[in-house]
Computed example of a mutant assay.
Amino acid sequence: MPANPSTPAPASEAARRRALLRTARDVAEDLAADSPARERAGRPPADETARLRDAGLLAALTPPRPGRGADWRTGCAVIREIAAADSSLGELVARHYVHAWGGRFYSADHRATALEEESAREQWLWTGAVHAPSPDDEAGRPDLTLRPRSPGYVLSGRRPVDTAAAAADQIVVDAVCAVTGDVLVVRIPPGARGMTVEPAPDRLGQRVAGAGTVVLDRVAVAPAQVLGRRPHDEESTAPFTALAEPALRLALCHVALGITEGALTEARDLSRGGRAHRPPGEDPDLFLAYGELATAAQTATAVADRATEVMAQALDAGEQLDAEEPAAVAALVAAAETVTSKAALHITARVLEFADAPGLDRFWRNARVLTAHRPVAHRLRSIGEHYLNGSHRAVAAAFR
């Protein structure tokens, strides 16, 4: 059964949580100091990844087990803290955390436990791109192909990856077996023989995230690298597996919230420091503008926090999750994504009216790239259909 959110955590777990959040704040402060310069340079996140690893965040941001890992609420708080300082790194951390759950979403529990222990011990950085099941066979068909070869498979094709394409220790992708037609979720290490990465230079935003296209030419995949099978459609998806895509979308909502926090904080500091177009003084119009934006940010945070709590309870339920729950969770996540996307784009555009300072535009560019591929109208129609008809299919469609 889901954990009761009002039940206090054991003292040791609460202390670990506080320590992790303190570490996240320290890392965020360090990242914020040179974020504009690193964003302008747009280099792959090799140094940044080292900072995260040295601070222990990569090992800590794995699914929770007694004495290690981070529960969903804490993980999302860390993501938001990092994203407020550097949204590229916030997205990198978000995708790392969710893909580290891949063993639980697609594998048996004993395999997931061993994989998570190895990930924490080796301080792996995770990334990937797994397609959501689709009622349209062609839309849901992966662009990667597995061909059986004893032992295991060989993997071929191309797949865009939004973070750490060349820096990650594990890349999680789905691929169709050319013989059986099954869609399998596999993990591959960068640098594997037959694999190359085509970087994505000169991105509009999220320039330090390390995006690129992974090109695979008969890359060997051992049986131990197969996490599990991804069903072809949402009707045949196990309840816990159905949380995989909403979990990623919700983690990215916290990146968007971090962007709004970072933009508002920097604009406020510029206004207080006299570098704004209008000095703060007693300007009621400026007060009104900041009041509007602060309210929009708080509203988005409230919606995302509600979805976060419900997702946390669903993840705590594990294999005992009720078959009807994932659709309700996904509907809340789709609503959170809609609200946070609108707030991030609106706030980051408005703060440009307050101050003319180098680097302030990066918040809008980062928000634009983060939200560009998820049209709001598409999600709203899916949410509405679920509200009216209780359609699982409609909610699943919101994440494509």
Rank of each mutant, 00 (worst) to 15 (best):
E282D: 10
H96D: 14
A83P: 15
D305T: 10
A83M: 07
D109A: 12
S12G: 08
A314E: 09
S6G: 05
E234K: 00
P326L: 03
D356E: 14
V215W: 13
D162F: 01
H232G: 11
G281A: 07
S12P: 09
H373Y: 07
A209I: 12
Y106E: 04
P66Q: 02
G228P: 15
I171M: 06
T371Y: 07
D30G: 13
A100P: 07
A129Q: 06
Q298W: 04
T295C: 10
C253Q: 00
A94L: 05
R16V: 02
A175E: 15
T295P: 11
C253S: 13
Y290Q: 03
R80P: 15
N389G: 10
D174A: 01
A14S: 12
P44F: 01
G75I: 01
D169F: 13
T23M: 10
V395H: 13
G212M: 01
E234T: 06
G205S: 06
L52Y: 15
Q206H: 03
P189W: 00
L332W: 09
S271K: 03
A108R: 12
R121M: 01
P66I: 00
D34T: 06
T163I: 02
P190A: 02
E117T: 05
A244S: 14
A33D: 09
A37I: 02
P160D: 08
P199G: 07
H277R: 08
E91N: 05
L250N: 10
L227F: 15
D285H: 07
R22G: 11
T237R: 03
A331I: 04
T348F: 07
L293C: 04
D233V: 03
R18I: 02
G205R: 05
L20W: 14
R350M: 07
A50V: 10
A59T: 11
E385S: 12
E29M: 08
V310D: 14
V329L: 04
D305L: 02
D316K: 05
P142S: 00
